[in-house]
Amino acid sequence: MTAFTIREVPDDVASRLKVRAAEAGQSLQAYLLALVTREATQPTLAEIAQRAERYATSEIDNDEVLRLIDEGRAAR
């Protein structure tokens, strides 16, 4: 695994993050890892737009649309 260091975090930001971690019952490290992981796994607007463009130029029938909706729901 890779380790990250973030320098020059303002004191008020660090304090708020520590409080939020404590409220979530997590260490600061676990809380920040969850934040970074969530950010890295969410598609960006550009990725969503690319995906939409691909789908807009594809020939998809109703059965395929329903299958993709079911897949999306199952992935939640």
Rank of each mutant, 00 (worst) to 15 (best):
G72Y: 01
V13T: 15
K18V: 08
I6Y: 09
A40W: 08
R51Q: 13
A56G: 12
L32H: 00
A56P: 00
A46C: 00
Q42R: 15
S27A: 10
P10V: 02
A30I: 04
R73K: 13
T57D: 12
E8M: 08
A49M: 11
T5F: 03
A75M: 09
R73W: 03
R7L: 05
L33G: 02
P10M: 02
L45H: 08
R51I: 03
Q42I: 06
E59C: 03
Q50C: 06
A30M: 09
M1I: 05
A22H: 10
D12V: 11
A14G: 08
T37Q: 13
A3Q: 14
A56T: 05
R76E: 01
S27Y: 07
R16V: 10
E71V: 02
A52S: 11
D70A: 12
R16E: 15
D12E: 14
I6G: 03
T57E: 10
R20Y: 05
A56R: 13
I6E: 05
A56D: 06
D11A: 14
D61N: 13
L66R: 11
P43S: 08
D63N: 08
D12C: 08
D63H: 07
R7W: 07
A74I: 06
A52I: 05
T2E: 15
T5Y: 03
T57N: 14
A21W: 01
T44G: 05
A52V: 11
L45G: 05
Y31H: 12
R73Y: 04
D70C: 02
A49P: 00
V9H: 01
A52K: 12
M1G: 11
Q42W: 05
I48T: 14
A21K: 00
E8K: 09
T41I: 07
